[in-house]
């Protein structure tokens, strides 16, 4: 079984102190574990469940309910392109095709070198500067194919 780092455990306890019921810290705990391990594999989820004091099934159920918890390994960079209506109106679908070609993978996949995961996502609150995407925690706005090429080569 996996053990969580001292850092992660501390963060979980800090979160738990904010609620009358420590179960409420399950989401924060999953975030902390994902930050440590890069993904939430079943054994990571089990370790989190134990620390919080809920069943693995409960923690598993919560993890699968939310789109931002990675249930399988992802690349070093997770490219999340919004294709919801404002972004689609401004050409996001062409950019999705461009990204697929450029990275040589389909949406939902990770490049063989483990560098990039490509994901189509719902609205990321950047509709006034559409099309928009997020890579890890950085937002990119008013995208064009050329802009995307520049951003990706900056990361390689």
């Amino acid at each position: 079984m996996i053990t969580l780092s001292e850092n992660t455990l501390q963060e979980i306890e800090r979160a738990a102190s904010k609620y009358v019921d420590r179960k409420s810290a399950l989401m924060a705990a999953l975030w902390a574990a994902q930050a440590e391990f890069g993904q939430l594999s079943p054994d990571v989820i089990e370790a989190v469940a134990e620390v919080i004091g809920v069943s693995s099934a409960h923690a598993q159920g919560l993890a699968t309910y939310h789109s931002l918890y990675w249930k399988k390994p992802v690349g070093k960079y997770v490219v999340m392109l919004c294709t919801n209506i404002a972004c689609t109106l401004m050409g996001a679908e062409t950019l999705l095709e461009h990204l697929e070609k450029k990275l040589g993978i389909h949406e939902g996949e990770t490049t063989p070198d483990g560098m990039f995961t490509l994901q189509e996502v719902e609205c990321i609150g950047s509709c006034g500067n559409a099309p928009a995407m997020v890579i890890n925690e950085t937002f990119y706005y008013d995208l064009t194919a050329e802009k995307i090429d520049g951003i990706l080569s900056g990361l390689r």
Partner: peptide, 9 residues
Amino acid sequence: AVHRGAGAY
């Protein structure tokens, strides 16, 4: 305190 969601409309 802040409670952080994880993606679910």
